[in-house]
């Protein structure tokens, strides 16, 4: 029996084949370990006490949700995440717009701007801890002398430490945001921009009415990426304050890493991590809904 595919079917098969390698790779090398890790979270198991290994169902999850330390960390993490992502988006967009026009100067500046991303995050934390130190730091010492920092320095005071850590994260990741948005800006079709210019639309109007709507997909990408990554921040905080002073910079990831990789309470550590993943999924879903409605409203306008 002869059998012919319609062009539409052929197209679907072709697209499936294009997506398949990535899907298979992610399924094997990411999904499989994740599922195993999720399995751990249902057990009471500590790798340092291998004789303890019982199934406890969701008890690790209920323990985590009722632990006051976890709750405090959740609040700190949410403030940190929202603050960092918002600041990075604004700074990154400004930078991208500044560097949009093509010139040798801008090309060179774009490259140099990437330097912070090339430094290992733990080292970023170390650099700023050193620079902001009120006794030895080139910045911290003079800030203290000028009376602009609390007596124990910006990272040593419960009121300023979180904001300072946010500043460090923004320093490190704004270039990434800027680069992605810059690539998107450069891919914008020139004719539409020219048309807008001929129409005589002013700078701000052009930005909010024409450029930003066209950038929405990239803005979403940047936001989603940064939300997922900032929520899991570990290295810079670990190196700069170790979660202190007090609990003021004690992000969830520090808790999860401590439980899982220092105490080897892998069941509890995995449970905290999976709760974090759920938070991230929730935040991104919220983001999608917001951006969709924004998209619709902009298209109507």
């Amino acid at each position: 029996m002869s059998f012919r595919l319609t062009p539409l079917q052929r197209r679907s098969i072709f697209l499936c084949l294009m997506a398949a390698p990535a899907a298979i790779h992610v399924a094997v090398f990411a999904l499989y370990p994740i599922l195993r890790g999720m399995g751990f979270s249902l057990f009471q198991m500590n790798l340092m006490q291998p004789w303890i290994h019982h199934f406890v169902g969701l008890r690790n999850y209920t323990d985590a949700l009722t632990d006051p330390t976890v709750r405090r960390s959740l609040v700190v993490t949410i403030i940190f995440t929202v603050g960092c992502v918002a600041a990075e988006l604004v700074c990154g967009l400004c930078l991208a717009l500044l560097l949009w026009r093509d010139s040798a100067f801008n090309r060179f500046a774009t490259t140099l701007m990437l330097v912070p991303i090339t430094v290992t995050p733990i080292v970023v934390g170390l650099i700023f801890r050193a620079l902001l130190d009120p006794s030895f730091g080139l910045i911290g010492y003079w800030l203290l002398q000028a009376g602009l920092a609390p007596p124990q320095g910006l990272l040593g005071d419960t009121h300023t430490a979180l904001a300072t850590m946010m500043g460090i994260d923004v320093w490190e990741w704004t270039p990434l945001v800027a680069l992605i948005l810059l690539a998107a800006l450069k891919a914008l079709p020139a004719d539409i921009l020219d048309a807008a210019e001929i129409d005589g639309a002013g700078g701000t109007r052009r930005l909010t009415r024409i450029i930003l709507p066209m950038l929405l997909p990239s803005l979403f990408l940047v936001l989603a990426l940064r939300f997922t990554d900032v929520f899991r921040t570990y290295d810079i905080v670990f190196a700069a304050t170790a979660g202190g002073p007090g609990d003021s910079t004690n992000l969830l990831m520090l808790l999860a890493a401590k439980e899982g990789l220092t105490f080897f309470d892998i069941g509890y550590g995995s449970a905290i991590s999976i709760l974090m993943t759920l938070c991230i999924v929730l935040m991104v879903a919220l983001l999608i809904v917001t951006l969709r409605s924004l998209d619709r409203r902009m298209n109507q306008a």
């Binding site: 990535a22 992610v26 090398f29 990411a30 999904l31 499989y32 370990p33 994740i34 195993r36 890790g37 999720m38 751990f40 979270s41 790798l47 989603a224 990426l225 997922t228 990554d229 929520f231 899991r232 990831m253 999860a256 890493a257 439980e259 899982g260 990789l261 892998i266 550590g269 995995s270 905290i272 991590s273 999976i274 974090m276 993943t277 991230i280 999924v281 991104v284």
Partner: peptide, 21 residues
């Protein structure tokens, strides 16, 4: 979205299983 969610899973969950794998 599954791809995006997978990026969001902290290393604490995956590191030991991946190591054994």
């Amino acid at each position: 979205y599954v791809f995006l969610a997978i990026r969001g899973v902290p290393t604490v969950v995956t590191l030991i299983p991946f190591y054994l794998f």
